[in-house]
Design a binder for these strands. Structure first.
Lengths: 347, 347
DNA sequence: GCGCGCTGGGAAAACGTTATCCAAGACGCT
DNA sequence: AGCGTCTTGGATAACGTTTTCCCAGCGCGC
């Protein structure tokens, strides 16, 4: 841009020369090290750096040190509040450890996820956080695990959010318990006949929540009819599609819908209104996650509150304490049922 | 994790040795170059790379090439849908150019913004995208501009989103026209007496929208009383605080509120409901941005639709075509008024 | 049959750091 | 005085790539 002189950035060399010291001393002064350096020299170096507008080249540092001061983060879709809230926690956590975050989006494709892990590996990040993984049980699982294992063998730490039984550090969201508690609460509110909106089965988040919900109903001798489980996308549009499918089947025998996440629930809410079905008079609805929007829609959405930002921060914390352990760790984070107007007590 | 053998990652050297060729040939085969390489050798190299699970070290490439294949993105808060939607566009745009995105959050602090730009500069990114900047008119402006200029002199490209009159490429959101159009539309709907919720004045996005709104009202001989401009945070909580302040003043002389962005409007909506004020019966409300949630709240929010993901993608596109120009460029993206139930036609 | 341009492989020099040595001086002890 | 032992600055060798040379082989025109 502009036809300005394209000089190259000041290097540590320049700083050292300017300050009249050696490269080593300059490096030690600026980045600190175990070695002490004479205070006067140090000041000279700092001054020179400031004067030249020197900023250390992170790539060079990374290559000299063997790994970058970086966290790689994989999300399905950063525009989805579930991931953006989690990402904000990851970024905050990384920042505390003076790590920068590089982010990639899978757009909800397992193939893409594999590609991205490979690509991100190239950055030699200290930590690799995987969220929204959807390879479980697919034929890609082996390749992904191989890739991740190879990465860890080179000194990095993998943290997976909400995907159990993989030999990596895991921040487990207690989807089973959360959904079970929600089912209990809904039954307690007087609901008996349920439908569910869910995503593809390779998404453990989705299938776990469904399972937990079934477990909860089971405690009361209730069941979720397979015909009443609508399997669509894990998105707002998925919720819309599910409503359409459900209305085709009729809702006379349904008094409450469980959508496995809030964005689906909110899409459903909107679609139900458009199609003239009143929530909660004609049918109640509950979601999962407690994204910000959940309390802003009308009726406000009953859901399971998840501290998503904390989940992100915890992922980083877990990774950064990995070297103090000898085996993988799992942190489980639970959610709390939040009853709101979308599921009032039933007469 | 696990006490596995911590080997170091396969290097190009290893690949070359495995394939029985020189380093140069291996590099040329894998990364392509202007030079041709014998097809058989090339296959050997590719095979070896695959066998060893080789992934090029990006830091090494960056340092050899002089700059990283990276886009640095600064946002105020990734959990805010305004930024997360824009970020998704940036990531998508970057991806098309095979660039990875590293992201940092200012948490809405101008000081932090300056620090982050410095830090990000260290990564020698090809492009530096600044969104949500709030240094305009502050004493930090000069330092920031200096930093950015220095960055561009080393070959990078700065793109600023929605901050005019700075000597860098800019994706301008036409906040003035959008707000003016909104004002016209609201007057056309029958509203006459307005209040506004806005952010701090160093946020141009905020002050421009207010100004545009004023301009629009002016065309009808209407004005926005200074006492009725509530200056709070650019967030959901800001909207809540503004409602409280406004209600203290009374709303008998107000028939419509303009919140300079949707998240404030939605916070306000929620607070108004809590305080027993009916929207739109007692007071109408309009926002700006058209974030996803705007259509999901009740009443659905009148707003100005901005193609935020496109804005992000355009920022990258602009940066990547910078070398074909000799001077800075500005792309202006406009918004369309979307009338919804929060501002019905007034009797 | 001989120079000459072209092709494509390999050696080696960057790139900007950090870390490992080495040397020289200061200091304490006998 | 002689001799270890610290301390601290400076050379220099990594780190993993790309890229610039150099050079050998080969086809080709005269």
């Amino acid at each position: 841009m502009t036809e300005a002189t394209r000089t190259s950035a000041a290097t540590l060399h320049d700083v050292a020369r300017e300050a009249g010291v050696s490269l080593a001393t300059a490096s030690r002064s600026i980045n600190g090290s175990t070695r002490k350096v004479n205070e006067e020299l140090r000041q000279r170096v700092l001054l020179a750096a400031d004067k030249l507008g020197y900023v250390a080249n992170q790539s060079a540092q990374a290559i000299a040190k063997g790994s970058a001061s970086t966290v790689a983060l994989v999300v399905s879709d950063i525009a989805d509040p579930y991931f953006s809230t989690m990402a904000s926690g990851v970024i905050r956590g990384a920042e505390e450890a003076r790590l920068l975050v590089t982010m990639a989006m899978t757009e909800r494709s397992a193939e893409r996820e594999l590609e991205l892990v490979r690509a991100l590996r190239g950055g030699r990040p200290r930590v690799l956080v995987l969220t929204g993984s959807r390879f479980a049980g697919t034929e890609l699982e082996a390749s992904l695990v191989k890739e991740l294992t190879a990465y860890e063998e080179t000194g990095g730490t993998v943290v997976i959010v909400s995907q159990r039984s993989l030999p990596f550090d895991t921040v487990q969201i207690d989807n089973l318990a959360g959904a079970r508690d929600l089912a209990r609460a809904l039954v307690d509110q007087g609901y008996r006949r349920f439908a569910a909106f869910t995503g593809v089965s390779s998404l453990l988040t989705s299938s776990d929540r469904l399972q937990g919900f079934r477990d909860g109903l089971g405690e009361f001798g209730l069941a979720l009819d397979d015909d009443r489980v609508y399997r669509t996308d894990f998105t707002r549009d998925g919720g819309i599609a599910a409503v359409d499918a459900m209305l085709d089947d009729g809702i006379d025998d349904i008094d409450c819908v469980f959508a496995v996440n809030d964005v689906m629930a909110i899409g459903a809410l909107s679609r139900l209104r458009d199609r003239g079905v009143s929530v909660p008079d004609d049918i109640a609805i509950a979601g999962f996650d407690d994204i910000d929007t959940a309390r802003d829609v009308t009726p406000a959405l009953t859901t399971v509150r998840l501290p998503l930002a904390d989940v992100g921060a915890e992922a980083i914390h877990l990774a950064l304490t990995a070297d103090q352990r000898t085996s993988v760790a799992t942190v489980t984070i639970g959610g709390d049922v939040v009853l709101r107007a979308s599921t009032p007590r039933r007469a």
